[in-house]
Design a protein around this nucleic acid. Structure first.
Length: 271
DNA sequence: CTAAGGACCTGTCGGC
DNA sequence: TGCCGACAGGTCCTTA
């Protein structure tokens, strides 16, 4: 499942191959994703057109055409990859965008939590317009976070995973960043100090950038747009390491549920 | 308004 | 082997 670095990796993998290439057709085999795929609109707008640019907002990909934008989210298990014409259609290959050069952009998503949407102006789309700042942008900083957290009792881990607070921090990077910053994931947000927010912001940026550089986190069988696996998994210090020794103090890592998500941390190193 | 819980869906893994 | 429950990278919506 794609966290932000996987989405960025996907973007970089597909971008050079699909920009300004004329689209021939779109095939939707399964329109029931997180939101129903607007098949008629896509059939009307994609064929004979071209993607002019691609960008990312949170974990959404914006594939921009002249007359509007295809918004793609990979959900929990989605992938978007380029395949050659006549590549065998596998289970859960829900959508194909076929180009005139015989390449196909193929969307596969076993759990179907992802989405394919159409918008004239993506920034005004209901799912997009209320998103918080990008974690790699300047608006996301310690002062912003600490002011927003002032009266919040919600656990700090939930706070930074809330897309209205900051867009695109998932379970892995929330867990990892809190470990790096020595903050217990279930601490009340209002009890986090400004200098701790500074550390958190720095670590979130560091982790995301490092993972992007390494082509995303490999979990199960994630592959980027070019089909190459990511290499970041071996860098994870707490996620998926319940019971294993903390890399700082060697005590076994604890797993608790916060907001129905597993949260691994070190009782000694995180306060 | 905030915070917590439920919902969507399929695949995999561990235990019995 | 087979069955069953727990759990998995997301995040919006509903409820209290």
């Amino acid at each position: 499942m794609p966290e932000l670095p996987e989405v960025e990796t996907t973007l970089r993998g597909i971008e050079p191959h699909i920009i300004n290439v004329q689209i021939d057709n779109i095939i939707v085999r399964q329109p029931q994703l997180r939101w129903k795929v607007p098949v008629t609109k896509l059939k009307k707008n994609l064929p004979e057109s071209r993607f002019r640019s691609i960008n990312r907002r949170a974990k959404y990909l914006f594939l921009n055409l002249n007359k509007g934008t295809l918004i793609v989210h990979l959900g929990m298990s989605g992938s978007l990859r380029l395949v050659e014409k006549n590549t065998k259609v596998e289970k859960h290959d829900h959508i194909d965008i076929i180009f005139k050069n015989d390449h196909i952009l193929r969307y596969n998503d076993p759990r179907r939590f992802g989405s394919f949407l159409w918008a004239q102006d993506p920034d005004k789309h209901p799912l997009i317009k209320n998103l918080g700042p990008e974690p790699l942008g300047n608006e996301f900083n310690a002062l912003y976070l600490s002011e927003l957290a002032r009266n919040k009792s919600v656990a700090i881990k939930n706070f930074i995973m809330n897309s209205k607070v900051v867009a695109g921090i998932g379970n892995i990077y929330a867990s990892e960043a809190l470990f790096e910053s020595g903050i217990k994931p279930d601490r009340e947000s209002r009890a986090v100090k400004l200098n701790e927010f500074e550390s958190l912001v720095t670590n979130i940026r560091k982790l995301l950038n490092k993972s992007i550089k390494n082509g995303g986190t490999t979990l199960r069988d994630f592959v980027g747009g070019d089909g190459k696996p990511g290499y970041f998994k071996q860098e994870l210090k707490v996620y998926g390491r319940t019971g294993e020794p903390c890399m700082k103090c060697k005590k076994p890592l604890i797993n608790i549920n916060i907001g129905q998500r597993s949260s691994v941390f070190c009782k000694v190193c995180q306060k």
